[in-house]
Design a protein around this nucleic acid. Structure first.
Lengths: 160, 160
DNA sequence: GTGCGTGCAAAATCTTTGCATACGC
DNA sequence: GCGTATGCAAAGATTTTGCACGCAC
């Protein structure tokens, strides 16, 4: 209620998409669920948080939410389409805000230092869609993970 | 689901690439390591096994290898390039045989029933490579994961 | 008031590690 | 024989679940 986003989203949370979606399914808008989604909205799309990250960030914002509830809420928000779940190889799953302004995107991950960069590619999206349709699958989302070496790790010729 | 292991492997194990690679690094070719790689070779590329799967399949082939050793061996074989590690959303990592005949490939995963299909796309590979080079990354491997609905799950209109 | 959601702790998974023993080289 | 690898069990890390209470509706 106090936090306003700079983009042209509906200003009031009282009838936002979260509440609306929850009520449609007989679910409830709790402060915990609001806080978790607010966190993702405040940092914007493109940032990957683990459940533990969300827990810590909320603690630092004086919003204590139990880890169990965070896990339950993250699963819920993914099912409702507010978040995307990522499976990079960082140990444990990560989540990020789903956004229309920020369509399916892809990741370059340095296998040595873990540095992660994002990019978008309509070509990749189309290729995935065509492959899906060829065998009758209906595409929902696609993610290209590129395992690579970043510039500085190319220079440090450390053998893994 | 389970494929019978060939009892007579035609390969000569005495001077294969595994032994050669291990000896270069001062490591040893143990029966356990041989058995794990043999398993992947006998089922061929394109099959995704978890550590637990490998454990079970070896047990059924009368080759008991401890789970701890399987985890250690899988990591080793990935580092040595004999296996690829996949991160689909099936809970836990999966591994498959690396093969020159079977280049980087991509996965269509049905988010409802878990059915997984593979495809290859030179277009995707190129797009990943170009994106990597644009920011100075050196591409090693790329995997496109497409989350989708398979035909039968499209027909069962169950709301998740 | 009804019943969904939360917090807590315990349990369930999945993976790694310490240490004594076994064995490839 | 030397030193790496294995097996076992215990520890870690991550995620889920049972239960009683609280709170959104």
């Amino acid at each position: 209620m106090e936090k306003e986003l700079s983009t042209s989203l509906p200003l009031s949370h009282s009838d936002g998409p979260l509440e609306h979606g929850l009520h449609q399914e007989g679910r409830r808008l709790t402060p915990q669920r609001r806080r978790v989604l607010d966190l993702f909205e405040s940092i914007g799309p493109g940032t990957h948080l683990s459940a533990e990250d969300v827990h810590h960030q909320l603690l630092q914002a004086n919003s204590r939410v139990s880890l169990a509830t965070i896990y339950r809420t993250l699963r819920l928000l993914v099912e409702m389409g507010f978040l995307h779940e990522l499976e990079l190889s960082e140990g444990g799953h990560r989540f990020e805000l789903a956004s229309n302004d920020h369509p399916d995107h892809h990741h370059l991950v340095c296998i040595r230092c873990g540095r992660t960069e994002e990019f978008e590619s309509e070509t990749v999206l189309q290729a995935g869609k065509i492959a899906a349709e060829r065998i009758g699958f209906q595409l929902l989302e696609s993610t290209l993970n590129v395992r690579a070496l970043c510039p500085s790790c190319q220079n440090n010729n450390i053998i893994i």
